[in-house]
């Protein structure tokens, strides 16, 4: 009840301040986004959202609860084999994510960490975003039968796409987000089809549906932590910083792959570097898959691949910025 009251006061405050003057408009827009980032994590809600990328669409049922500061979420992917008990279930507790992924007669359990999942797409700290985007208050609209304020995130340069964010005017919750290219074509869209606040504190929903006839196995992709230092990325596109560096096993690869993740606060790019194994074909060139740009290069006997939901210029700039130090790389 307190949270609801808090949300109402905050929304009253932001709506009132919209009318003050146009100079304050950008601050207001950031304030709405700040509220959306918090609302997604603090409120208790249940709904169905649809994710569209390229020609693919998926609907997902979400239940989110903040249990005394501990965030619990269950996502159930509704499109694939729900009747046959083959639906994918995703649980998150704090920053830990566990995915139950049915595959033929097995259910593969995958573990992940620290991702901002819908509707908590915005980071709580918006400061990095302010370097690369201008926030602008847009029109009022309706999403899932609820009134929503549109906020536009407009990039300051050509190294990122723009975002349109719809937030519930009553609760502040992010209810819809689209990713647009420089021609204002929609590349990706994620939006609630229905959403309701939850009053109950019952946690019985937070458990996987167990199919006793299936084998449960942990995924084989285990992250390793050794880090090579014989390569450097000379110059990143403005606003991007390195947020992670991992080594991982990818299906079908004999040696671990170095993965560096760069982000400007909302858009992210992965850089993959792996030694070229004798007898395998290297990849070159670039491709757009849905909203994802991919660019591949060969540098000094290494396969370099850059992937991200960003313009082609961004993945190309990062792939060109990779160089290797003088001493010949040994794989061991």
């Amino acid at each position: 009840m307190f949270r609801l009251a808090f949300a109402l006061t905050l929304s009253g405050f932001t709506l009132a301040s919209f009318s003050l003057n146009s100079f304050a408009a950008e601050d207001d827009a950031w304030l709405v986004l700040q509220k959306a980032a918090l609302a997604a994590r603090e409120l208790n809600y249940q709904g169905v959202f649809i994710y569209q990328n390229g020609n693919q669409a998926r609907s997902v049922q979400i239940t989110h609860m903040n249990d005394n500061g501990q965030e619990l979420t269950r996502n159930l992917v509704l499109d694939n084999g729900l009747q046959s008990g083959q639906a994918r279930e995703v649980f998150s507790q704090g920053s830990d994510i566990v995915i139950f992924h049915p595959q033929n007669d097995k259910i593969i359990i995958e573990k992940r960490r620290g991702q901002n999942l819908f509707p908590a797409m915005l980071p709580v700290n918006l400061q990095p975003l302010k370097l690369s985007y201008i926030a602008r208050v847009g029109m009022l609209d309706y999403v899932a039968g609820r009134q929503a304020q549109i906020i536009e995130l407009i990039p300051k340069d050509a190294y990122r796409y723009s975002y349109k964010i719809w937030t519930d005017t009553e609760y502040g919750l992010l209810v819809k987000m689209t990713l647009l290219n420089d021609k204002t074509e929609t590349l990706e869209q994620i939006a609630f089809q229905e959403v309701n606040m939850l009053n109950s504190h019952d946690l019985n929903w937070f458990q996987p549906r167990i199919d006793a006839s299936k084998n449960y196995v942990m995924e084989d992709a285990a992250s390793l932590n050794r880090v090579h230092t014989n390569w450097i990325v000379a110059e990143l596109p403005p606003g991007y910083i390195k947020v992670d560096h991992i080594e991982l096993m990818v299906n079908g690869k004999a040696s671990p792959i170095n993965q560096m993740i760069f982000s400007d606060g909302i858009a992210s790019v992965s850089l993959f570097i792996e030694p070229i194994v004798k007898g395998t074909r290297t990849k070159t060139g670039h491709k757009l898959v849905g909203s994802t740009n991919i660019c591949a290069n060969v540098i000094n006997g290494y396969q370099v691949v850059v992937v991200g939901e960003v313009p082609l210029a961004t993945v190309q700039m990062i792939s060109k910025a990779v160089s290797f130090k003088k001493q010949t790389a040994s794989n061991r």
Partner: peptide, 28 residues
């Protein structure tokens, strides 16, 4: 070498989306 345009490098996309800080796409 394989020209990128001829293939769909799903393993890279999946690995990227699995580690991206804002991920709507990965598990879906």
């Amino acid at each position: 070498p394989v020209e990128m345009a001829q293939i769909v490098p799903l393993e890279y996309i999946a690995a990227h989306q699995a580690a991206a800080p804002s991920g709507a796409a990965y598990y879906i």
